[in-house]
């Protein structure tokens, strides 16, 4: 049992990789994911915290002004940093969640759940129950994204296809950053 837990704890880096992979998928493929509960669109919104795998290594924080497109973000990725925390927007149909996702624990932080549809505010619907259910629904969405990531991450396609694509993405971001810095 203790051995199992130690093994699992050593693999928690996969959650951190999930965040960088979501960023990549959002930029390269538009951020739409087919999940069991329906399609979800995802955007990396703000509040990027990047860090190296080494706890004592460099860190970078970027806020405001579309930080995912800033040269500093490209430079951080090119320097080997991974996304440790970020604010996302997730949309299912016309419902939107704004939240931060922690790359160490996959905890959901500061979640703003979808507003109730117009005209329903005064109904007998229990607003608190709806809010808690929307919070749990987001938990389900993130868990499903993680499962989808694990399916790819633990397949042969990860090293053969996805890692080169991720490297190309970083290269393209760095090229754009060079152009921006040089302009």
């Amino acid at each position: 049992m203790a051995e199992d837990l130690a093994f699992a704890a050593e693999r928690s880096f996969l959650a951190t990789e999930l965040l960088t992979w979501l960023w990549f998928r959002c930029e390269v493929e538009g951020g739409e994911f087919d999940l069991d509960g329906g399609q979800v669109a995802l955007v990396v919104e703000d509040g990027l915290s990047l860090a190296s795998w080494d706890d004592d290594g460099p860190r970078a924080s970027l806020r405001g002004g579309t930080p995912t497109l800033r040269p500093e973000a490209a430079n951080a990725l090119g320097g080997g940093l991974v996304l440790r925390r970020a604010r996302f927007v997730a949309a299912r149909g016309d419902r939107e969640w704004h939240f931060a996702l922690d790359g160490d624990t996959l905890d959901l932080l500061g979640v703003k759940v979808p507003e109730p549809p117009e005209g329903e505010e005064d109904d007998a619907v229990d607003a608190l129950a709806e809010k808690l259910a929307a919070g749990e629904e987001l938990r389900g969405i993130v868990d499903a994204l993680y499962a989808q990531f694990l399916e790819l991450r633990l397949s042969k396609d990860w090293d053969a296809i996805e890692v080169p694509r991720l490297a190309d993405w970083v290269k393209a971001k760095l090229d754009r950053a060079w152009q921006t810095v040089g302009a």
């Binding site: 795998w53 990725l77 090119g78 320097g79 080997g80 991720l166 970083v170 760095l174 950053a177």
Partner: peptide
Amino acid sequence: PLLLGTAARNGDLAAV
């Protein structure tokens, strides 16, 4: 763990 910086540099990249 994914060493994205290394993978990118192996593609003849240099950080800005």
